Lab assay of single mutants.
Amino acid sequence: KMTIRVKGKELARRIAKEMKDRNLKVEIHEHGDEVILEIE
């Protein structure tokens, strides 16, 4: 399990899509400006 902190929703969406393309499970937690992606 891996956690990534990202500034900006646009970048977070791009990373999430990339991870889904690799068949990984992604959970997205938004905290205002910061987005936390949990990847399994």
Rank of each mutant, 00 (worst) to 15 (best):
R22D: 02
K7T: 08
I36S: 03
K17P: 00
I28G: 03
I39M: 04
H31I: 14
E34G: 04
H29I: 14
N23Y: 07
E34A: 07
E18L: 15
E30C: 15
H29S: 08
K1V: 08
R14P: 00
K1G: 10
K1D: 02
R5E: 02
T3M: 12
G32S: 04
E10K: 11
I15G: 00
E10Q: 10
H29Y: 14
L37T: 00
A12L: 03
E34N: 08
G8K: 05
H29G: 03
E10A: 12
A16M: 11
L11F: 06
E27G: 06
I36H: 05
D33G: 08
E30Y: 15
E18R: 14
M2D: 03
A16N: 01
K17E: 10
K20T: 13
M2Y: 13
N23I: 03
A12V: 02
I15V: 05
H31T: 10
I4A: 01
A16K: 03
E18Y: 15
E30T: 09
R22I: 05
L24I: 11
T3E: 05
L24C: 11
E38C: 12
V6A: 03
K17Q: 13
R14G: 03
G32F: 06
N23T: 03
M19V: 03
T3A: 05
I36Q: 03
E18S: 12
I36L: 07
L11T: 06
I15E: 00
H29E: 05
E38T: 14
K25P: 03
I15F: 06
I15K: 02
H29F: 14
D21N: 13
E27R: 13
E38K: 10
G32R: 05
E38R: 10
R13L: 15
I28S: 04
E10Y: 12
K17S: 07
H29L: 11
K17R: 11
G32I: 04
I28D: 00
K25R: 12
V35P: 01
G8D: 15
R13N: 11
E34H: 12
K20N: 09
K20C: 13
V35I: 14
E34S: 09
L24V: 06
E40G: 11
D21P: 02
M19K: 01
N23W: 07
E38G: 03
R22H: 07
R13S: 10
M19F: 14
E38M: 14
D21I: 11
G32A: 06
M2G: 03
E38A: 06
K7V: 09
H31Y: 14
M19I: 05
M19E: 00
K25N: 10
G8I: 07
M2L: 13
I36K: 03
I39P: 00
D33F: 05
H31P: 02
H29V: 11
I39Q: 01
E38L: 14
E18M: 15
I4K: 02
E38D: 05
K1H: 10
G32N: 07
R22E: 03
V6D: 01
R5V: 12
H29W: 13
D33K: 05
M19Y: 13
V35S: 05
M2S: 05
E34F: 15
G8A: 06
E30W: 13
K17A: 12
E10R: 12
I28N: 01
K9I: 15
R22P: 01
I28C: 12
I36T: 07
V26Y: 05
I36N: 02
E34I: 14
V26T: 03
K1M: 09
K1C: 14
V35D: 01
A16Q: 04
E27K: 13
I15Y: 04
A16W: 10
K20Q: 13
M19N: 01
D21A: 14
I4P: 00
T3F: 15
V6R: 02
K25A: 07
H31K: 10
I36A: 02
G8Y: 11
V35H: 05
L11S: 03
R14Y: 05
R13T: 08
R13W: 13
I36P: 02
A12G: 08
D33N: 08
E40W: 15
L37A: 00
M2T: 10
L24D: 00
E34L: 13
L24F: 14
V26E: 00
K17V: 05
E38S: 11
V6E: 00
G32L: 07
I4Y: 06
K20F: 09
L11I: 09
K20W: 09
K25F: 08
R22M: 10
K20H: 08
N23E: 05
V35N: 03
E38V: 15
D33H: 06
E40K: 10
I4W: 07
E40D: 11
E40R: 12
E30L: 11
V6P: 00
E40F: 15
V35A: 04
K25M: 09
N23K: 09
I4D: 00
G8L: 09
K1Q: 06
A16I: 13
I36W: 14
V26A: 02
M19D: 00
A12I: 02
V26P: 01
E27T: 15
R13E: 12
D21H: 11
L24S: 02
I4F: 08
K25V: 09
V6F: 08
D21F: 10
R5A: 04
E27P: 00
V6M: 07
N23F: 09
K20V: 09
R22F: 06
K17F: 04
K20S: 12
R22A: 07
I36M: 05
N23L: 07
I28R: 03
K9E: 05
K1P: 08
K20G: 07
K1F: 11
T3L: 13
H31E: 14
T3Q: 08
K7P: 03
K17N: 08
L11K: 06
K17Y: 04
K20M: 14
E18K: 13
